[in-house]
Simulated assay, not measured.
Amino acid sequence: MTRPSDVPLLSVRDLVKHYPVRGKGLLRRTAGDVHAVCGVSFDLYRGETLGLVGESGCGKSTTGRAVLNLQRPTSGQVVFQGEDLGTTSSKDLRRMRQRMQIVFQDPYASLDPRATVSSAIAEPLRIHGTYADGGPERVRELLRTVGLNPEHGNRYPHEFSGGQRQRVGVARALAMRPDLVVLDEPVSALDVSIQAGVVNLLEDLQEELGLAYLFVAHDLSVVRHIAHRVAVMYLGRIVEIGDRDQLFDQPAHPYTQALISSIPVPDPRRERERAKRRILISGDVPSPVTPPSGCRFRTRCPKFAQLTSDEQVACVEQVPELVDRGQGHPSACHYAEVIPVV
């Protein structure tokens, strides 16, 4: 894609988020840490969508919330529009929150069932003290923008369908005219027939308003449709990142290859052919409290099982760096190899 600027809107470096595990008993001492996010780095540009994908529990949503400082990072740096969020005062952070918003996975849980839709959308305007300056008209405008009837603003969330409720969530996120929106699995709770409408709405809004999206999802088909670049996460780390078409057509990391090979296709004949070449992952995801040494994917990696014992030493002892090893985009695998997944 053609970027309007070489300066990232959002720059994340070595982001870490650990959660303490408390023991039982009166003192409840810390027994360990859940390694939710471990050294994640990426840039996001204005008007761009970065898809963040991986299995459940890999740290995608935690990354999105840590970027917005909704969950304070354990360490690392998040720079938004040139300002380091880690060193920003509470007053300045409150001001900056107007420029960055989030749409949650469950549209019903993210809306107050006792408040009308108009009240929910107007809430950011009231919090930031701008509702008195044309607030009611701004709410009606937002409802029209997301494809809802402004006359239905006096209804409550339970009177809308799931897709309509998610549109309300999008409208609320747009109330303060943000530059960055974190989309935390925004269509995973919706029927397939409804997903397309919401995804198309997000694309139209991005083109119209120049928004940057951090799109968290586990549905690779949706990500391939909407994202410009894709970052694949496994057990708290990014294992591969690159332009959408290059990553889907020429995946270099064994985990990415397994994920892409599992995407179903609507053609029965092609699906049977794909099933013969499907890359299967064995075993369970290791505990994030005690992740494996070296490469975290090695305990389930089909390539690791084919290596000699001497070659396996690197996987066991060394954490693979996220670098380009000649495949055209960075991947975190000592033995990265492009395997087209048709």
Rank of each mutant, 00 (worst) to 15 (best):
L247C: 00
R270W: 04
I263M: 09
V285M: 14
Q257S: 10
R229F: 00
P286Y: 13
S287D: 09
I281Q: 09
P268N: 13
A212L: 05
Q250C: 05
I281F: 04
L209V: 10
E203W: 00
G283Q: 12
E203K: 15
D245M: 03
A231I: 02
L209G: 04
A212I: 05
V230F: 00
R244F: 00
F248Y: 15
V285T: 14
E208R: 15
A258P: 01
D243V: 01
Q257D: 06
L214W: 05
S287N: 12
P254L: 03
H225R: 14
E207W: 06
V230Y: 02
S287Q: 07
R229I: 00
L280M: 12
R269F: 09
D219V: 02
A212D: 04
V230H: 02
V285A: 14
G242S: 12
L247Y: 01
V265D: 10
D204Y: 09
G236A: 05
Y213I: 02
G210I: 09
Y255T: 06
Q250Y: 11
A217H: 03
F248E: 01
A258Q: 08
G242Y: 11
Q250E: 09
D204P: 00
R274D: 00
L201H: 08
V223W: 04
F215Q: 02
R224S: 00
R278G: 06
L211G: 10
L220V: 06
R229Q: 08
E271G: 04
A212K: 03
Q250S: 12
I241A: 04
H218R: 12
V222F: 10
R277V: 08
D219M: 05
Y234D: 03
S287F: 08
L235S: 11
R224W: 00
Q206E: 01
P268M: 14
S221Y: 02
V265G: 11
D284S: 15
I241V: 15
I279F: 04
V230W: 02
P251I: 12
D243S: 08
R237A: 10
L247N: 02
L211F: 11
G236P: 03
Q257M: 04
P264K: 12
G242H: 09
L211K: 13
L201S: 04
R277T: 14
R269T: 14
S221T: 13
S287Y: 09
L211V: 08
R244E: 04
A231V: 05
I260N: 12
D267N: 15
R278W: 04
V285C: 07
E273Q: 15
R277F: 02
L280I: 14
V232C: 08
F248L: 05
K276P: 01
E271T: 11
Y213K: 06
L235E: 11
A231M: 02
S282Y: 10
E271Q: 15
D204H: 15
D249Y: 07
E208Y: 07
S221F: 00
P254K: 13
I226F: 07
V222W: 06
H253Y: 03
D245T: 13
H218I: 08
R244T: 14
R237H: 10
I281M: 12
H228M: 01
F248S: 11
E273M: 12
P268K: 14
A252Q: 04
D245R: 13
